[in-house]
Amino acid sequence: MLQKLIVIIDGCVCQFTAKVLSCKEASLKTVVNGKKELLNGFEVILDDTILFPEGGGQPCDRGFLGSVPVVQVSRHGTDAVHFVTEPLVEGETVRQMLDWDRRLDHMQQHSGQHLVTAIADLEFGYPTTSWWLGEEVSYIELDTPTIKQEEITNIERIVNDKIRASSPVDVQVFGEVGLIPETVRTRGLPDGHKGPVRVVTIQGVESNMCCGTHVSNLCQLQVIKLLHAEKGKKNKTNLHFLVGGRVLKHLAGCLEREQKFTALLKLVPTVDK
């Protein structure tokens, strides 16, 4: 049997051992190379997990149980269910290994969303009604029919000021809903919710009920870039954004395209003054 193992990176547990409580045959509807497919495999429940099941607008973590890749993690009631393509032995202890790059990306986008949401509401009275963490670009749905470019610029300036100020991000767990301070922002709990409630607080900015993964300090976001706004559903506005590593990736793509066009047109790139 494996000894209990915990590996921590930047305050996050990335490797952990747990016991397999159950492993049952199952199937999963998924998309492979752009086509919908039915994947046969197994649903595994552990006595504890470090892999986040999808929820609250955030996709699930990926990683490994031993040498077996985890395709998806979902929440069934109070259980985190790991979908894998190979069976595991019930009662055995397995090592969980988290895909840290994916987790860090999701932490940056989710904490960035909390920050943009708070500033858009505090500065301009535009509350967030929903959000989506996409594979490349994310967006926040604001409860306003329009937003001016000047307002977008001001939000971007303020959120990046907060990042440079290195404001801490704290997580508290409340055993009962009635104990949560009235200042905590919430859109309500999911139907059938049972158990503790997590509150994520960006010090000096806001507190928000949230089940997702977050950075421990705003400086870990690096930078936020607000890309553009577009008309959303029901007279609302979608504000698209990038955080942290995604900003660098986007900039690298822009520079690569510029270099290709420059070479094609045989021009010399210039820098705006």
Rank of each mutant, 00 (worst) to 15 (best):
M97K: 10
V84G: 00
P127Y: 06
R103L: 00
G91T: 09
S111G: 09
D61S: 07
L38K: 12
G244F: 00
C23L: 09
V68R: 02
G11A: 09
K29T: 13
C60E: 08
G112S: 11
T186R: 05
T129K: 10
F124Y: 14
V71L: 09
F174Y: 15
V116R: 00
S74P: 00
N160C: 11
L28S: 09
K234E: 13
G34R: 05
F42D: 07
V199W: 10
K35S: 12
V70C: 05
P69K: 02
V71T: 12
L226H: 02
I45S: 12
G56Y: 03
Q3L: 13
V184M: 11
V31L: 10
V44P: 01
G245I: 08
Q3Y: 10
D191I: 12
N154H: 15
H82M: 11
E258A: 12
L2N: 12
M97G: 13
S67C: 10
K266P: 02
L239F: 03
I6Q: 14
L122F: 07
K233T: 07
V13R: 05
P59K: 00
S166P: 03
Q172N: 14
H110Y: 07
H250V: 00
V247H: 04
H228N: 13
V94Q: 01
M1Q: 11
I147T: 08
H240M: 08
I45F: 11
G77M: 11
V171G: 03
V171P: 00
H106G: 06
L189V: 11
S27Y: 03
V205A: 08
P87D: 06
P190F: 08
I180K: 08
R246F: 06
V184W: 09
F64D: 02
S216C: 10
L265Y: 14
L122Q: 15
K24Q: 15
F16K: 00
L88Q: 07
K162V: 02
K249H: 13
F241H: 05
L264M: 15
E136F: 09
P53C: 07
V268R: 11
I8A: 06
V171Q: 11
V7I: 12
I152K: 11
K236P: 05
E90W: 02
L226I: 15
D143I: 01
P53T: 04
I8S: 09
C23I: 05
G55Q: 04
F64T: 05
Q3N: 14
H110V: 03
A118N: 08
